Amino acid sequence: MKKSASIALAAMIFSGCLGSAYAQTTGAISDKNVSVIYLAEADKGSEGVHSVPTITHQKILQAQEELRADNALRSFLQQKRVELNNVIIIEKAANGDRIVYVR
Rank of each mutant, 00 (worst) to 15 (best):
M1Q: 10
K2G: 11
K2S: 13
K3I: 14
K3G: 02
S4L: 14
A5V: 10
S6P: 00
S6W: 07
A8W: 01
L9W: 03
A11E: 11
A11P: 01
M12Y: 04
I13M: 13
S15K: 01
G19A: 15
S20Y: 10
S20A: 13
S20T: 13
Y22Q: 12
A23G: 05
Q24Y: 11
Q24F: 10
Q24N: 15
T26F: 05
G27D: 10
G27W: 02
S30P: 00
S30K: 11
S30D: 12
K32Q: 15
K32Y: 10
N33W: 00
V34D: 08
I37E: 08
I37V: 15
L39Y: 02
A40E: 14
D43I: 06
K44H: 07
G45S: 07
G45R: 07
G48Q: 10
G48W: 03
V49H: 09
S51D: 13
T54C: 04
T54P: 01
T54S: 11
Q58R: 06
I60D: 07
L61D: 14
Q62E: 15
A63G: 12
A63N: 07
E65C: 02
E66P: 00
E66M: 13
E66T: 00
R68Y: 04
A69D: 13
A69I: 02
A69C: 05
N71A: 15
N71Q: 12
S75F: 06
S75L: 08
Q78D: 10
K80Y: 06
K80F: 03
N85G: 02
N85S: 14
I88Q: 11
I88L: 09
I88R: 05
I89Q: 06
K92R: 13
K92D: 04
K92T: 10
K92H: 02
A93Y: 01
N95S: 11
G96Q: 05
D97F: 00
I99Q: 03
Y101K: 04
V102H: 05
R103Y: 02
